[in-house]
């Protein structure tokens, strides 16, 4: 029964909701730290640093585990959220004629399912914008640089080993691997040029061969709104997760609440300024 108690009871659902939610908060921090490189470093070095970071994120075994946990967490958080919402609707089949007062709870606490659904929409869009291109469609350009050689401008791929390979002199296999065109010898591996994709997406300008996004301004606005939604979701979710796990004590509850509010404002805010700054930089 212990297993079923940990899965089926109403409290267990809340534990999972809280645990996955808190894990996703951790994910947000990691994701943000990486993304901030988009605005902390500029120019080629920034591009290089960001793409290196993206490569690291895709290949480090620990990070891989973490990202699988993230996927699972998102899935669990969604399924759990749906189950809870359905049960909660069932618990009050007939509503009140005079709508419930708004004095006794915060708006976000009453609308977590709505906020969560909006965030899900965002996650899908966000995935389609970047993750899908990199991981599924594999149509992302590789990081290459143009140098002035005695023979005129030459295009070179940047490899993960830190060396350069001429674009003309290699064959790309498995999306990112460089091979000697005639012999099956692997010469190195390239970076996906995620940085340029991002810049092109939010600036609307052609970037290193990535065509500019015609609706860049809308994209920026959409992302900012999404972050506002996230902020409201976190505003309740962060502290709520602690409460669900029973972490409450008169001494610390206020701290948890304040940290939660700080987190809910700071993290989405920092996420939101990235597209804004990119757009500003290029327009």
């Amino acid at each position: 029964m212990s297993k079923s108690v940990l899965l089926k009871s109403s409290l267990a659902k809340k534990y999972w909701m809280a645990a996955t939610g808190l894990f996703l908060c951790l994910f947000l921090v990691g994701h943000l730290l990486g993304n901030l490189q988009l605005i902390t470093h500029t120019g080629e070095s920034g591009r290089r640093a960001f793409n290196e970071y993206a490569y690291f994120m895709a290949h480090n075994p620990f990070i891989k585990v973490m990202s699988w946990m993230t996927y699972i967490s998102i899935l669990f958080h969604i399924i759990d959220g749906i189950l809870l919402t359905v049960e909660n609707k069932k618990a009050r089949p007939i509503g009140y004629a005079h709508a419930a007062g708004t004095k006794s709870s915060t708006w976000s606490s009453r609308n977590m399912a709505l906020l969560g659904s909006l965030i899900l929409v965002f996650i899908v869009m966000h995935g389609a914008h970047f993750w899908y291109k990199a991981k599924v469609k594999h149509d992302m350009l590789l990081h290459k640089v143009t140098v002035q050689s005695p023979n005129g401008p030459a295009e070179l791929y940047v490899t993960t080993a830190g060396s350069y390979l001429p674009v003309q002199g290699v064959k790309v296999k498995n999306h990112t691997e460089f091979f000697e065109p005639s012999v099956d010898i692997k010469l190195g591996e390239g970076y996906k040029d995620l940085h340029s994709v991002v810049i092109a997406f939010f600036s609307g300008k052609e970037t290193n061969g990535v065509p500019g996004n015609e609706n860049a301004l809308f994209a920026v606005i959409f992302y900012v709104i999404a972050m506002v939604v996230l902020a409201f979701h976190l505003m309740h979710g962060f502290a709520s997760a602690f409460q669900s796990l029973g972490a409450r004590h008169p001494k610390y509850t206020d701290t948890i609440k304040n940290v939660g509010n700080g987190f809910a404002i700071l993290i989405p805010l920092l996420f939101a300024i990235i597209p804004v700054i990119i757009w500003k930089l290029y327009n």
Binding site: S10, A100, Q243, S244
Partner: peptide, 25 residues
């Protein structure tokens, strides 16, 4: 299910605290 809105604590005529829900958790 409890989603920690806290409305119960506000409306409880006897002021029962959310501490009790946390303790139950």
């Amino acid at each position: 299910n409890c989603t920690n809105t806290g409305a119960c604590e506000i409306e409880c005529p006897k002021g029962i605290s959310l501490d009790n829900i946390a303790r139950l958790n």
